[in-house]
Design a protein around this nucleic acid. Structure first.
Length: 310
DNA sequence: AAAGTCCCCAACCGCTGCATT
DNA sequence: TAATGCAGCGGTTGGGGACTT
């Protein structure tokens, strides 16, 4: 039996909210709260709206202390760094930006920030068709031996390079990102803890480890150790090495993922709630997500040079 | 001034995880 | 344990304003 729809789509109103509807919803919630039941809320208020729509309207627009308008450079920096670290987990990213909603952050990233940072497009290198080239990049075969690099993973790799370049004072001169300085507030727990051992670090330490930590709390029974790490990394679009590949890109991917796995295996991040999102298990190696070791940096540089015009 | 195109963002859609029964 | 219902999340869409031709 399928799930019953949350509302009757034939009778609920859709589309933009009127000022009157906003006022009714705002007044009711401010006086009585949501009652932890969004589905029932519109009926109580007398709104012909779906409960989900009410919830979205309240959270993204009517809720107190919502910040509208331009994002600050500090907010830009935070979004960028967190996107590299954890990907498109907009609710977590937004939680680090007081007054911003996940929808806001998502829209801002997709429409402005991403274009500003990743504005350059991969060019057709002229050897073969673009489709062929894309197929090579994606590991496009049907034997299941190699997973494609997701758009998110590619973006994050490129952003890593941007930040790495930013960290290098010599190269940052020509980089418009040089105005971004790491913000002490937004370096999360990563910079609050110094590296406690000699494990390698890369942005992906936090990426994979964060995902491992979060999924650990949810799925400890299902997967464990390296198997889980590999599952998470592959699901995120980070390719497993292909035994059949001969191209440089495959070699670089293999090197990159080896770095990712070796670092992730020694690092854990756990999610502990709104105030302290990130804390590290004792005995593990916290890392700064933009603190690359020379070998990591070298591999990333090679990779980016291969894939992008960098 | 009109038509076409681009861009932004509010809102919707569908999925997932959790709580409850 | 399975079924159900809900909140929450990320991806996507489409209306409309801004910009270009």
């Amino acid at each position: 039996m399928g799930r019953a729809p949350c509302c009757d789509k034939a009778t609920v109103k859709r589309g933009p909210w009127s000022p009157e509807e906003d006022a009714m919803l705002k007044a009711y919630i401010e006086e009585r709260g949501t009652g932890n039941n969004w589905i029932a809320l519109p009926h109580k208020i007398g709104l012909k709206r779906c409960g989900k729509s009410c919830r979205l309207r309240w959270l993204n627009y009517l809720r107190p202390n919502i910040k509208h308008g331009d994002f600050t450079p500090e907010e830009d920096s935070t979004i960028c760094k967190l996107y590299i670290s954890i990907g498109s987990r907009w609710s977590i990213i937004a939680a680090q930006l007081p007054g911003r909603t996940d929808n806001d952050v998502k829209n801002y990233w997709n429409t402005k920030l991403k274009k500003r940072l990743l504005g350059g497009r991969r060019k057709d290198r002229g050897t073969g068709t673009q489709q062929h080239r894309q197929g090579e990049l994606d590991g496009a075969n049907n034997d299941g031996e190699q997973q494609p690099l997701s758009a998110s993973a590619m973006e994050r790799i490129q952003l890593c390079m941007q930040l790495q370049e930013m960290q290098n004072p010599l190269s940052s001169i020509s980089n418009p990102l040089h105005l971004w300085q790491p913000s002490s507030h937004h370096q999360m727990a990563a910079t609050a803890h110094s590296n406690s051992n000699s494990s390698r670090s890369s942005s992906f330490d936090v990426t994979v480890a964060a995902e491992q930590g979060q999924s650990s709390s949810l799925n400890d029974q299902h997967l464990g150790g390296q198997q889980q790490l590999e599952t998470r990394a592959t699901a995120d679009g980070l390719a497993s090495p292909s035994s059949a590949g001969n191209s440089n890109i495959v070699t670089i991917e293999a090197e990159l993922q080896e770095l990712i796995y070796s670092a992730a295996a020694t690092t854990t991040v756990t999610q502990q709630g709104d105030v302290d999102w990130w804390s590290y298990d004792q005995g593990k190696s916290p890392v700064n997500c933009w603190d690359f070791t020379p070998e990591t940096s070298s591999v990333l540089q090679d990779y980016a040079a291969e894939v992008y015009d960098m």
